[in-house]
Amino acid sequence: MTITPEEVRVTAELARLALSDEEVARMTRELGAILGAMERLAAVDVEGVAPMTHAVALDCPEREDVVGPQLGAERALAGAPRRSGQFFEVPRVIAHDKEG
């Protein structure tokens, strides 16, 4: 399977990575080579095999509903690139940016 530059652009948009035209061209080449090598999996007979999502089969453990130590705003914001009062500050959010 080959990947097109357009697919690379769409994927980069989803991954929020700015790529120059030169990078798109290089990425198209490199991802194409890697995906080409993955093609061999298509030949493996996986009929009736359940996908393995976890390395070890465990039950999901549950914790008690207890409030533990919190960082509080000051420590939470300590590493923020930009803050405003007790908030993280970001470039203006427009409704259409939200996918969820």
Binding site: M38, L41, A42, V44, V46, V49, A50, P51, M52, T53
Partner: peptide, 12 residues
């Protein structure tokens, strides 16, 4: 084709 299949091969 990719992720799900890889997980199945992983089981193998």
């Amino acid at each position: 084709a990719y992720y799900l299949r890889a997980q199945k091969v992983r089981a193998l």
